[in-house]
Computed example of a mutant assay.
Amino acid sequence: MILNTDGTKPIYVQIAEWLETEILSGNIKQDEKIYSQYQLADMFNINPATAAKGLNILADELILYKKRGLGMFVSTDAKFNILNKRKSRTLKRLVREIVMEAERLSVSEDELLQMIKAANNEDKGDV
């Protein structure tokens, strides 16, 4: 992963999102030890405090848990928590934006649903 240091999203948020994606994809499994703040700092050439902030976000959201003296580990419910968070935050925001744009363009609900179905079929290779 390459961090976007020129964007508006803070680096520690990008680190947290990258770790979430690694967990969702199965590259890091439940109860597996996660990278330390120093490993992340070395991997991404960032300050260890920035990496720690990303890890702490995930700990606060119960995606990671701490074992004193051993580091941080992926919680049993990590995938569930990530999926719920992304559905409730990211997808809902995107859907609201699409619905508002559809209203501005006078696109009906049925037409919008057909567009979504068509895009989904394209992604599956059904076209």
Rank of each mutant, 00 (worst) to 15 (best):
M1P: 07
N4K: 12
N4T: 03
N4G: 01
T5W: 13
D6I: 12
D6R: 15
G7Y: 09
G7C: 13
T8Y: 02
T8S: 14
T8Q: 06
P10N: 08
P10Y: 08
I11S: 01
Y12E: 09
V13I: 15
Q14A: 11
A16G: 09
A16F: 00
A16V: 03
E17G: 02
E17H: 07
E17L: 02
W18C: 00
T21A: 14
E22T: 06
I23M: 06
I23H: 05
I23F: 13
L24R: 07
S25V: 03
N27D: 06
N27Q: 11
I28A: 06
K29C: 11
Q30K: 15
D31Q: 02
D31N: 06
D31P: 03
E32P: 04
K33Q: 10
S36W: 04
S36Y: 08
S36L: 11
Y38L: 12
L40I: 13
A41P: 01
A41F: 12
A41C: 04
D42N: 12
M43Q: 06
F44I: 04
N47S: 05
N47W: 03
P48W: 10
P48I: 11
P48M: 09
A51M: 11
A51Y: 07
A52N: 14
K53D: 03
K53Q: 15
G54S: 10
G54P: 05
G54R: 02
L55N: 04
L55D: 01
I57H: 05
I57N: 07
D60T: 11
E61T: 09
E61F: 13
L62F: 14
I63E: 02
I63L: 09
I63F: 05
L64C: 02
Y65P: 02
K66D: 12
K66R: 13
K67D: 05
R68K: 09
G71M: 12
F73Q: 04
V74L: 01
S75H: 06
D77F: 10
D77Q: 11
A78R: 02
F80L: 11
F80E: 15
N81Y: 13
N81K: 07
I82S: 07
I82Y: 05
L83Q: 08
L83V: 15
L83D: 02
N84V: 12
N84Q: 10
R86K: 15
R86C: 10
R86N: 14
K87P: 00
K87S: 05
K87G: 01
S88V: 08
R89S: 14
T90M: 12
K92Q: 05
K92C: 05
R93T: 15
L94Y: 13
L94Q: 14
E97A: 05
E97P: 00
E97T: 08
I98W: 01
V99A: 00
M100S: 07
A102R: 01
R104E: 14
R104Q: 14
S106G: 00
S108Q: 08
E109W: 08
E109F: 12
D110N: 14
E111G: 02
E111Q: 11
L112K: 04
L112P: 04
Q114F: 04
Q114C: 01
M115N: 03
M115Y: 06
K117P: 00
K117Y: 13
K117Q: 03
A118Y: 14
A119G: 07
N120I: 07
N121G: 10
D123M: 15
K124E: 14
K124Q: 12
G125L: 11
G125H: 13
D126N: 13
